[in-house]
Design a protein around this nucleic acid. Sequence first.
DNA 1: CCGGATGAGTTTCATTTTGGAACTATGGCA
DNA 2: TGCCATAGTTCCAAAATGAAACTCATCCGG
Lengths: 112, 112
Amino acid sequence: MKWSDLSDNWCPVARTLSLVGDRWTMLILRDCFLGLSRFEQFIASSGMTRHILADRLKRLVEAGVLERKAYTTTPKRYDYVLTEKGQELAPALLTLKDWGKKHMPVRRATSA
Amino acid sequence: MKWSDLSDNWCPVARTLSLVGDRWTMLILRDCFLGLSRFEQFIASSGMTRHILADRLKRLVEAGVLERKAYTTTPKRYDYVLTEKGQELAPALLTLKDWGKKHMPVRRATSA
DNA sequence: CCGGATGAGTTTCATTTTGGAACTATGGCA
DNA sequence: TGCCATAGTTCCAAAATGAAACTCATCCGG
């Protein structure tokens, strides 16, 4: 079964995951909740590649989770900001944060 | 950046997602919360392919989220059951469920 | 004993997705 | 004019995924 087919699944968890259940989307949203809003900020913060970010932003805007607002018109540049719908994902991010703090300690394999 | 590198990220959300942030893992956990526990049940319920399921189960067991318990010894067969650590992901699933019910209506593109 | 069914994977191969890096476009600024 | 910044887009190789077939062990019916 294709992943995208889940958007019509009977299960609301599956439908939610069809939008935010890939490897990077939630991190973009985390960054939005941290106050970031621009392409280069997301790149710097998350470490994802540029074309994946471009694709995910497009999907999130189409889904109504983010809104793309121009902040300059002449070179067209945009802020990506959470909509009301996007804001309501906050509880999900918070539960993931709490679980991570409790159950996913940093291994620090790269510490000095 | 490789996805798997996130397991040592400073952000607990990112660390959590390094385990459950792929396209299918959360659905396995959803099934566990619904009471399913066996390979063929997960296959039937989720629609994922067999080798992806096998891989994800292995990862979840290694991470201590699921426990693999033999229920027959002579053709070795196993139940996959949530550990305490896994149980504690319930709030995350519930927030995703609530958000999906509110914001991801079924489009029913394939209805009669 | 033979043939099929069941449960849990494993293997193979084609298609997609991703990671990494370079390239494009627009305009500011020295 | 040349360089920088922002925001993408394009290209290619590497990795992940989807689909289907195959394996293995055991039970069951005849």
